[in-house]
Design a protein around this nucleic acid. Sequence first.
RNA 1: GGGCCUAUAGCUCAGUUAGUUAGAGCGCACCCCUGAUAAGUGUGAGGUCUCCUGUGCAAUUCAGGAUAGGCCCA
Length: 923
Amino acid sequence: MDYSKTINLPNTSFPMKAGLPQREPAILEIWDKEKLYESIREKRTGKEKFVLHDGPPYANGDIHVGTALNKVLKDMVIKYKTMRGFDAPYVPGWDCHGMPIEHKVTEKHKIEHTKEGLLKFRGACRDYALKYVDIQKKQFKRLGILGEWEKPYLSLDHGYEAAIVGTFARLVKEGYIYKGLRPVLWCMTHKTALADAEVEYADETSPTVYVKFFLKDSIKNIYPETDGKKVSLLIWTTTPWTLPSNLAICLHPEIDYALIKIKDEYIILAASLASKVFEKAGITDFTVVKTGVKGTALEKLRYQHPFMGREGLVILGEHVTDQDGTGCVHTAPGHGEEDFFIAKKYGIEPLSPLDDAGRFTSDVKLFEGKKVFEADPLVIELLKEKGVLFYEEKITHSYPHCWRCRKPVIFRTTEQWFLSVDHKDLRKKMLASVSGVKWYPALGENRIKGMLESRPDWCLSRQRYWGVPIPVIYCEKCAEPILEENTLNKITELIGSEGSETWFTRETSEFLPEKYTCKKCGGAAFKKDTNILDVWFDSSCSHFAVLKNNPKLKWPCEMYLEGSDQHRGWFQVSLITSMALEGKPSFKNVLTHGYVVDGAGKKMSKSLGNLITGDEACKKYGADIVRLWVAASDYADDIRFSDEILARLMDAYRKIRNTARYLISNLYDYRPGEKDPAYEKLTDLDKYMLHRLEEVIQETTGHYDKYEFYKFYQVIYNFCVVDLSSFYLDILKDRLYVNAPDSIIRKGSQFVMYRILTALTKMTAPVLAYTSEEIWQELRKIGAAGKSVHVADWPAVEEKYLNNEVKTKYEKIITLRAETLKLLEVLRNTKVIGHPYEAKVVVSTASAEDFALYKHYESELAGIFIVSQVELLKGEKNLVEVQKASGVKCERCWNFSATVGKDSTHTSLCERCVQVLKETKQY
RNA sequence: GGGCCUAUAGCUCAGUUAGUUAGAGCGCACCCCUGAUAAGUGUGAGGUCUCCUGUGCAAUUCAGGAUAGGCCCA
């Protein structure tokens, strides 16, 4: 007789091999078809809301693993909160305006600077953005992320654009918006401002001049010998053309400045640079009169501009170095960012006497009409004439160039719109509000506070084309901006119904009341602002545009979850608009994660060639592996992504999957509730495992609640490997296979296995979105309720299954088991035994208490150690011995037993197996 | 250059309120099993806790610095 036919072997069609890259898309299709997201919404209607507000990714290119990580984290939070009973809708969004799209589109379309040309260009940008919204949407869905993919929010939606303009209008009304000057990088060929990203650095040879600027104020109180003598500060510049705009000379407060006598005049420059400069200039005949005077002592001295007929001021700045030059920095606030900001501190207004093409205006009669670089030699000539040119040379240095025309760019001061962060104490209020927000990890609070303390006013205007227009109209005659409420409201309304294109298609007059005249000069002709708003302003309005305008959502929301770069970005700009206009933050919790880096901890970049897209990862590993990677990583720090890491996770995935598969395969004849033994009838092993499960549920719930997914991963993985695979399930084999199918011992174990599997499946659902669903569908076959694991409720801790008494006892048994296994290894290595069934364990115990405990489990011990026999002795000391089992191997259960052969019909079976055959009428 | 942060086995993570041999799982090596089988069990080997200096009787743990790396800014 073939006894293997009489045992209850595992049976399932659930595949061992996952084949995720193929299987997942099929599951996704079912979710789509069965409208899983909508079903979840329906089930959670009326429940407490948990709104995670999606930070919009930029609609350009394929999603990067970093973006995938971000979205998966969000999805895990939402899936978990949903299972915990919250109504957690997810409305994903996209950031659609801005420069990167402009650039991509410019590669194909040249912008024609006409109304039609501009509209065409913007249309192309829009198409481009929508195309990538679609591409990215597919990639996000592929990752198993559930959400309102059919109705996402886009920053180019009419409603969203109206919210942007409306927010601007409200900020104007509250007095936060002002017009000011600011230096920008300017391309003289394209006659346009450039963003930092549009500039590339290349070597450039420039004329370099050392120029004497004569002091007007006497410094005889510091240097008595200079009384009545000519004293100059020696400055240095590589852009002589900026000298007409010189308004100040900047010194470092702490650097030593030297007074040097040459013939009959005195020159001041940084002491440490003097010899270098004089050597260059070939001057040997000089005397160092005095050193040790700090820049501070020279502050606020006045000097005579060498040819502009005005005086300038000596100021102090930390940016001055004594590494090169003279330590006296020529400062033209109209032509440099640092110059601008340092001059601002001294109340010096910048001078920028250039037109759009970089030609001097009539403000500088000497060079009127000359382009800046043409002016260089003319300036040098003039300096020579005036006798102030100390030394001249050519140097090659790194200089910014326009990335399109490759021509050198300049700094030029322009008028821009700003948001004041100190108006109405906004900065202070923001700083205070930050403490009321919960930051994950807690250090995020530090970081944003530091940034809030130092951030300058927000420059809102951009000289670009693809974005939301600045809704300001100016008087043609006096350039007075119209910031009246009703005008701004009308613009907002029109943009709301027609989109921002309306700004370009409609005439200026259509945005103004009839017969409107300028309040300042009475002019009747007007023009629209041609600039757009910073795209960060777009995203700063998302909480208004999305949370306030969608009744399914709420303001403020529970959570923002983004990369750590958003402390300066989205978190901060959202805080600005929400604090300025609503007086509280638009979020209650902020979770930040680090950046994805490669296996060596280096950042991912095109140039390093270590970049990987979300799609590539899904194709190579499968979404669930990517999700497991996200869950297993501690996102507080940088997150490494490498083949080795993913290979380890695939191993882990297989282990989890196989553990689930094994549970499934032993539940084919189980129906929940049908033949479940009462708790008291369960063996202590089963009780112990029920207890362990409750512990695991408690632990994982705690970890999820703190968003510490990697801790969840460790707990659940160890539970699968240590508690289940190598302990419980290994021991269970004998019980499940050999005993009668409906025996209490088998049914009891199945009851526990079922509870473990359902809980395990639910607990892993937020992470292994697809696999848990696959397992759930198997559970449904035997009676689990609910069409998807994602509509199921989170497993509740069953207090009645907590049993510390059994736990304490069992931990002793487990310790004894570990000792036994070590000894079995010795027998195996000496070839005394192969399978542990060939062994017998003899346990001598000195402690009466322990002996009693072991005695209590005497009948189970052999099964627990997976050996054939266990003998317990009350001995002098604690000792475990292992020896060959006695008796003969039973052909059915493979245990060794002295009872084999006792039955006359089944001569190769042990007593137990004979009994089982009788029970099951197979005798 | 500045701000914030990180650094424990090949990998992912623990841990030490400073105190005898620093833990887990995986991976690896070896063995077993062949009734979870492109599976499963067991045993074992892996770490100068990034480096330097300091404060302690004692430092991987505290302080200072360095190096490497990340984000943001200049």
